[in-house]
Write a protein that binds this DNA or RNA. Sequence first.
RNA 1: CGGAGUGUGGCUCAGUCUGGUAGAGCACCGCGUUCGGGACGCGGGGGUCGCAGGUUCGAAUCCUGCCACUCCGACCA
Length: 439
Amino acid sequence: MRLSRYFLPVLKQTPAEAKIASHRLMLRAGMLRQEAAGIYAWLPLGHRVLRKVEQIVREEMDRAGAVELLMPTLQLADLWRESGRYEDYGAEMLRITDRHQREMLFGPTNEEMITEIFRASVHSYKALPKNLYHIQWKFRDELRPRFGVMRGREFLMKDAYSFDLDEASGRASYNQMFVAYLRCFARMGLKAIPMKAESGPIGGDLSHEFIVLADTGESAVFLDRRMLGLTVPGETVDYRADLTPIVDEWTRLYAATEDVHDQARYERETAPADRLSARGIEVGQTFFFGDKYSRPMKATVQGPDGSDTPVQMGSYGVGVSRLVGAIVEASHDEAGIVWPDAVAPFGVGVVNLRPGEASVDAVCETAYAALTAAGREPLLDDTDERPGGKFAAMDLIGLPWQLIVGPRGVAEGTVELKRRATGERRTLPLDDALKAIRG
RNA sequence: CGGAGUGUGGCUCAGUCUGGUAGAGCACCGCGUUCGGGACGCGGGGGUCGCAGGUUCGAAUCCUGCCACUCCGACCA
């Protein structure tokens, strides 16, 4: 992408409403524009990151055996009356009436709809297990939206739903999602710690919240420091095998949010030096709730013995749009965002210090073509902005690499290469710089 | 939803107390000088002062009502 054609409205001054680093930086880096309280337009740069995060979630869900579909944002109220949640959900649910006075709602989650879809076509235990997911915009009319995309009213969520014949296989499905989540967050450069959690309005008795530690997190958490050193399963993990050992390893040490924190147990199970109380951002939550929805909504299958039984269900959410904020919160410095490679909106910023000078332009074009061909997604700053402004903007938007073309006092074809994360700068021939970027 | 606060050009804000021709910086346009860490000079464009009533010769400013947004708290991917 050439910056001269792109839409990247970076701000020198910080909008007054942004109180935390991630919100401030996302606004300044031209990723977001607020349209209403808790409702944001994702500008091109933010949109690219959102799509990358979404894609990582998708790949890990697919790897774990889940199947993607797409359900609508609008749902019928009648569906929610079946589960009894239409009244329970309260003012947080955005209710809409269509021209025929039909009561509808903007979905805050999709348990009812997926159950309806499932029950319409699955009637035999032979079709189980199944795990269906989608990545779709949700709306929850929060009392107080805040912190930018970390607590918006409209947000992008991945929600998966598992269906099993009995509790044992239901728990196996739960374990698959648990492991997929460990991988998913690690790939984004995050250390997310699974913590025992309350299941809240979703229901059920088995639930974990995946928490990224950050000072600006909304929940207080208590954990055994040793959790930070656990190894995340690699991409060769066999999801068809028994995953209990991995889940056991990740749930053996104490880790709990304040809602379920048990101080006595904490002190009994954790050595004083290992105790870590911190704040965290919830980026995902897993639930196993058995037949809470399948029973009232009559989602049953016929078992080997010929009897109809409600399926055992779980649901698994990842806050995709929230993750973008969480990543910025976890990875920034004084100058701006420092994107982990896997989610960076572009791989490298090519800075033309002297646009209009034929020899400098030529080097830029060579670099741009080579990096594009190598799949490194370059962003070429070909504007006539002054160098100071270019450097500040590049640091702000935080691409992993900066390739600076046209510095003074170096031989033609020699460039400067900067690694954003470390600040390390080297002057070297273009070919060597391209090799370094390609890895 | 309780408490506190803010609405003035795209952004940050002054002006409101004490009513009298709408301001500054940044951003934007033109010309020139600049060009490795968010330059400078000169000239220019852009605002129903959140909305609706009211008081007044006259309202950004005073009064009433409404709306939006932000912060603290209680609830949540």
